[in-house]
Computed example of a mutant assay.
Amino acid sequence: RQPADSVAVSPVSPGFWADRTPVHEIANGACVNLLTYDAITPLHEASLRGQTQCVELLLSAGAQVDARNIDGSTPLCDACASGSVECVKVLLSHGAKVNPPLYTASPLHEACMNGSSECVRLLIEVGAKLEAHDCHFGTPLHVACAREHVDCVKLLLNAGANVNAAKLHETALHHAAKVKNVDLVEMLIEFGGNVYARDNRGKKPSDYTCETSPTAKCLQYYERLPFSPHRIISLFLLIGVKTFCQHGLAKIAKLNIPRPLRKYLSYN
């Protein structure tokens, strides 16, 4: 209850300047696309903070959904960096572009860097390019492996990401070896990762491991096989694997080949 001498104050027209909020500023015509010196808009800031209601308010007031800051990032990139699935959904519903120009970080890169598997899943569903290439980070798969986000790696590989895509000849398997993550190494090899790939320094993934570590032993095991998963998969493609796969799933389990390779060939 208000005192008898009090005055009811409209939520859009507060009686005192100290009571004013950004909502009041927008309602009174403030520009929602104001830029900082590095081209950051209020929508960038709200998206980076995961503030879904602010994002909705700004977009309703005319904020540019695909505004780019000085680094080329859009609000959708920032929402993915924050891991806010709800912000991502709002931005996409207002037409945010999921695939930016070439050689700049994409929303999918940001989601993989943050380790937000739900954002990764959502972006893949709406058509994010799995092979989007950033000149600094490579593909989203490179980023996810370098940050050891196993769930994101699994989503990318199951969606069809190129396991042997290269950044300066460096593959995701090189990244997995450098961070000494044997689970990542196993997963990448199961999806056809080439254990013999050499980077711009002429080094294989195993060259970045300690000789007695589990990661090194795993890579050395596959290097010693007469045919690595990568080479056998290439051979299958050459002889027409498509004609084999239609009726051959039941036969794959009976093949006398390493278990990881059987698992790989059985994936849908």
Rank of each mutant, 00 (worst) to 15 (best):
E148M: 05
G202C: 13
S213Q: 07
E223T: 12
E25H: 14
G95L: 07
V90T: 13
T215R: 00
L184K: 01
A128Q: 04
A46D: 05
L156I: 02
G240S: 09
E170M: 11
P229G: 06
L238M: 05
F16D: 14
P100R: 01
H174M: 12
A161V: 08
R259T: 06
C119Q: 13
A18L: 15
I26M: 05
P107T: 03
T209D: 12
F227W: 15
D38R: 14
F227V: 11
L237W: 10
M113V: 10
D5M: 13
H109V: 07
I257Q: 06
S206K: 11
Q64C: 09
F191Y: 09
K180Q: 11
A8G: 14
D207V: 07
A63H: 03
L35S: 03
S93H: 05
L59D: 09
L184W: 04
M113E: 12
S13N: 10
L265G: 01
A197P: 03
K251P: 08
D134W: 05
L92W: 08
H175F: 05
E131F: 01
K180N: 06
V85S: 10
H24V: 03
D199E: 13
A161Q: 09
P75T: 02
P229L: 05
R224F: 14
T212L: 12
E86L: 08
K217G: 08
N164V: 02
Q2F: 15
H142Q: 03
A105F: 09
G193K: 05
N200M: 13
A8V: 15
R1C: 13
L219I: 13
L91D: 05
F236M: 05
A146I: 00
I189V: 15
L188M: 08
V7Y: 10
G248M: 12
Y267K: 14
L91S: 01
W17P: 13
Y267T: 10
